[in-house]
Amino acid sequence: MPRFSRRAGAAPAAVAIGLLAAVPAASDDPVLARPHTVAHFDLARGQTPESVVAERGGAVDISFAFARQVVKVTRERRVRVLATLPDEKSPRTPLVSSAVTHGLVRALDGTLYVTYATGTDKTGVWRIPAGGGTPEQIAELPANGLPNGLALDERHGVLYAADSALGTVWRIPRSGAEPTAWATGPALTGLPSATGFGANGIKVHKDAVWVTNTDRGTLLRIPVGADGSAGAAETRATGLAGVDDFVFPGHSDIVLAALPQSNEVALVGPDGSHSDVLTVQEGLSNPTALAVSGRDVFVANAAYFTQRDPNLVKARLGTHFSRS
């Protein structure tokens, strides 16, 4: 849920050509084709999408920040509530004040995990049974933190939560146990002169944890050591002002990143260069999160700043990024 200023623009056409040169040229397809809105949500009911996870068969799971809900959007565009996080009568959540659900991941067995921030002992990671049901808190995180993005390393049975307020990446056993402050440091912290939002989006990719920093506009790579410890954070891209969530559309280090205030999705190359590939003209309304299923790309839009039409946009990934 970032607060930020618009980033300086690059030369979009030249940058895009350079980025596409980094992947095998399979056709003349654009990076993202046929974008269209597949679902509209209700701002008045707190249906502000914060995270999106693609399921097989075309459905997606979404966390609604202010509704404190996790829902399924079916292929038929029906919205079904899977779980509602417990209410907090007196939330004291840093940076946002309200109780909010943020990062969402789905395990292979269908279990969902979501971060919840309230400024109380309800702050932490919660588990939702496959198919929906009563959520259960599996890890408590500091009440003065703001757990935001969430990533799952299924192979090692651990979750990683990006804390935007404390500038920390937490490591939590999937089975539920005491969390560990896995990575800290200036690269993960926000800027007091800006919004205060530091570490935000997070993914596990190629034996590393990748994290965005909203205030600093950076994409970071933190290697995972053989013993599970965090290596030194490497800056892989800069100039992504207000960056939120991101996704790897293929097997390389190329990234699609959500830039909420400027209403853009950016393509970020391995060398850090970036270019916009979706804009407000394609239906974006403060994009916060992305998910990929095959060649389908889903973009969740929270409408935090536009205050108009929170929605889900779907586009078709160019064959440059075949995930086979």
Results as ranks from 00 to 15, higher is better:
V96H: 12
T189L: 15
H40A: 05
H274E: 14
H40V: 06
L278W: 00
F246Y: 08
R316W: 09
G198R: 01
E136M: 14
V297M: 08
N144E: 15
I172K: 09
A226S: 14
V255L: 05
D271H: 07
T120L: 03
G185K: 02
L284K: 09
A161Q: 03
R221E: 12
T115R: 04
P249M: 13
H251I: 10
G176Y: 06
V73P: 00
A226F: 10
P310M: 11
R216K: 15
G190Q: 04
V297D: 08
G318N: 09
S324Y: 10
G198L: 01
I254V: 14
V158D: 05
R295P: 03
A302H: 10
A226H: 09
P173M: 03
G149R: 01
R34V: 03
G272P: 10
Y304H: 07
V96W: 06
F248D: 12
A181G: 13
S322P: 03
K203G: 05
V280R: 00
D309W: 04
V224A: 07
F321W: 13
V209M: 13
R75V: 15
T123M: 04
L32E: 06
A151E: 01
H36M: 10
P287A: 05
V158R: 07
L112N: 04
V15P: 06
S51N: 13
G176D: 06
A181P: 06
V265R: 04
R68V: 03
D153L: 11
F197T: 05
T93H: 08
L85D: 07
R308K: 13
A107H: 11
R45V: 03
G133P: 02
R7M: 09
Q47I: 04
G131Q: 14
T111C: 12
T168G: 10
N301K: 07
V79G: 01
A107F: 01
L191P: 02
A39L: 01
V297W: 02
D309C: 02
A22V: 08
E55Y: 03
S97Q: 07
P49W: 00
R77Y: 06
F66C: 02
G228Q: 07
A181W: 07
T306F: 15
E88F: 12
R174C: 05
G103F: 01
V224I: 15
D121V: 02
T306W: 14
D29E: 11
A11I: 13
P35K: 10
L191G: 10
G242E: 00
V299M: 03
A237I: 04
I254D: 14
T214M: 11
F4L: 05
A11T: 14
H251T: 14
A226C: 08
S285N: 12
G318K: 01
L267C: 11
A300W: 00
T184H: 06
P2R: 04
I62G: 00
L146P: 08
L219P: 00
V158S: 06
P94I: 07
A33I: 13
D121S: 12
L220W: 09
D29Q: 03
V255T: 03
P24K: 00
L166D: 10
Y116N: 04
G157N: 06
E136A: 13
A139W: 15
G283E: 05
Q261E: 13
F321N: 01
H36D: 14
L19K: 00
D28L: 09
A39G: 08
L259V: 08
G231F: 14
A59L: 07
T115N: 11
A99P: 10
